[in-house]
Amino acid sequence: METMRFDYPASTTVPRRVCLGVVASGDLEILLQPSTDGKSHVLIQTSVTGFGDTWKAVLDWFFSTYTDAADIVIHDAGATPGTVALRLQQAVEESRA
């Protein structure tokens, strides 16, 4: 099990709390809620070690366009970068619905 933390600047705050996905073989769960300090914080707990650079690249790409402050917890069971990006986008859309 590996745990990683990333922080990103933000300009607004995510509207509401969201939980989506399931932790199962090859997938992940995302818990997203408004941040209290005006920044985005991502905590990743993954069963697959050694992919910190890949996680950083996906999150850097995501936060290059996503500007809401959120506390995000990701429980990963080997999701691909494409799945991670899709789930993050789904979480944001759901929080704004």
Rank of each mutant, 00 (worst) to 15 (best):
R5V: 05
F6S: 02
D7C: 12
D7L: 12
D7Y: 03
Y8Q: 05
Y8P: 04
Y8C: 06
Y8R: 15
P9G: 03
A10R: 03
A10I: 01
T12G: 10
T12I: 08
T12W: 09
T12P: 10
T12L: 14
V14S: 11
V14L: 09
P15M: 10
R16H: 14
R16E: 10
R16C: 07
R17F: 03
C19E: 15
V22I: 13
V23H: 14
A24Y: 14
A24H: 15
G26T: 13
G26H: 15
G26N: 13
D27T: 02
L28P: 14
L28N: 05
E29W: 04
E29L: 12
E29R: 15
I30S: 13
I30N: 03
I30A: 11
I30H: 01
L31Y: 08
L31V: 14
L32E: 01
Q33T: 11
Q33W: 05
Q33D: 10
P34S: 05
P34I: 07
P34M: 02
S35N: 13
S35W: 10
T36F: 06
D37I: 06
D37N: 12
G38F: 06
K39H: 15
S40H: 03
S40M: 09
H41F: 00
V42L: 11
L43I: 08
L43D: 13
L43W: 14
I44T: 02
I44E: 02
I44W: 03
T46C: 09
T46D: 09
S47G: 09
S47I: 07
V48W: 11
V48K: 12
V48C: 04
T49F: 04
T49W: 09
T49L: 12
T49A: 14
G50M: 05
G50V: 11
G50A: 07
F51L: 13
F51K: 12
F51W: 10
F51D: 01
G52M: 13
G52T: 12
D53T: 00
W55L: 06
W55I: 02
W55P: 00
K56F: 06
K56Y: 00
K56A: 12
K56N: 07
A57V: 05
A57L: 08
V58Y: 00
V58D: 04
V58E: 10
V58I: 04
L59K: 07
L59S: 03
D60S: 00
D60P: 05
D60E: 01
D60T: 03
W61M: 10
W61C: 05
F63D: 09
T65W: 02
T65I: 11
T65V: 08
T65M: 06
Y66S: 14
Y66A: 01
Y66H: 05
T67C: 08
T67Y: 06
T67L: 10
T67P: 01
D68A: 15
D68S: 14
A69V: 00
A69S: 13
A70P: 02
A70I: 06
I72W: 02
V73Y: 09
V73N: 09
I74N: 10
I74S: 07
I74P: 06
